[in-house]
């Protein structure tokens, strides 16, 4: 198992309700796992917990058989460099070029010699890799544009190219198509499938649409009010179960 989550609990500061309540699941390597649930069910929080952006209130997370819930500093950075993340609102660095944004996927490599990273230029082979990644996502001609001049779909493709450069073993995609039109959405999901098949990345993705879930994700898990309601093949997700997941 590449990821093993056991009794994961989380509560935001100054809140009484637990956002996640004893969530347990495991993810085999090279799999595509879709996560569904209504708004506020804890999908995004779970992604953030896995990546160490949120502190857990209980439970354990094992990544490649290593417990990571208590990691800090350079240990956390080492684990994070093997875990990519794509955000709903793209989270690209504004005013920077497309190329720079893609190259930022490599910054994890600089983790222990940051001074070298600060004062040296980007290595030529990284730049070449970035060009190839941008070509892969169909943005070869926008290399030197500022990211603000790109459409939503294009920005998300830049984020995917950043992940291609990072080459993580696990990719966490937090509602990557929430603000995109259907054509761009399909394109993004097809790239995620490509990352899974070509680069062997395990993909964990929050999905809002059941249509996309059924098309691109063979397995899924469902959350409701912070509790795990279902884990298994997407094809076996019954209509009654879906109603239960989404009813308030």
């Amino acid at each position: 198992m590449i990821l093993k989550v056991q009794d994961l609990s989380h509560r935001y500061e100054r809140r009484v309700d637990l956002t996640l309540k004893n969530v347990s699941f495991s993810v085999p390597p090279r799999s595509m796992l879709g996560i569904i649930g209504s708004s506020g069910s804890g999908k995004s929080t779970m992604m953030r917990c896995i990546n160490g952006l949120e502190t857990l209130n209980g439970g354990t997370i094992e990544f490649q058989n290593e417990p990571i819930q208590n990691l800090r500093g350079s240990d956390l950075r080492r684990v994070r460099s093997h875990m990519g993340m794509i955000f709903q609102n793209f989270c690209l660095v504004p005013y920077a070029s497309v190329l720079t944004n893609v190259l930022l996927g490599k910054t994890g490599i600089w983790q222990n010699r940051f001074l070298g990273g600060l004062f040296s230029k980007w290595p030529q082979e990284w730049i070449q890799e970035a060009h190839q990644a941008l070509e892969r996502v169909g943005l070869a001609e926008r290399v030197h544009d500022s990211v603000q001049h790109l459409s939503g779909g294009q920005q998300q493709r830049v984020a995917i190219a950043r992940c291609i450069l990072q080459k993580p073993e696990l990719l966490l995609a937090d509602e990557p198509v929430a603000s995109l039109d259907p054509i761009s959405s399909r394109m993004v999901f097809e790239y995620l499938v490509a990352l899974n098949q070509e680069y062997g990345m395990t993909v964990l993705c929050n999905v809002h649409s059941l249509e996309y879930l059924r098309t691109y994700f063979p397995t899924c898990l469902a959350l409701k009010k912070g509790k795990l309601l279902y884990q298994g093949p997407t094809a076996e997700l019954s209509e009654s179960m879906i109603r239960e997941i989404y009813e308030t």
Binding site: N51, L53, R77, R78, V79, R80, S81, H82, M83, G84, M85, F87, C91, L92, V93, L104, G105, K106, T107, G108, W110, Q111, N112, F114, L115, G117, L118, A159, R162, Q166, L172
Partner: peptide, 12 residues
């Protein structure tokens, strides 16, 4: 956060 998730050093 996007940079943190790549494992970048705080100075980076």
């Amino acid at each position: 956060e996007a940079l943190q998730t790549t494992g970048a050093h705080p100075l980076i």
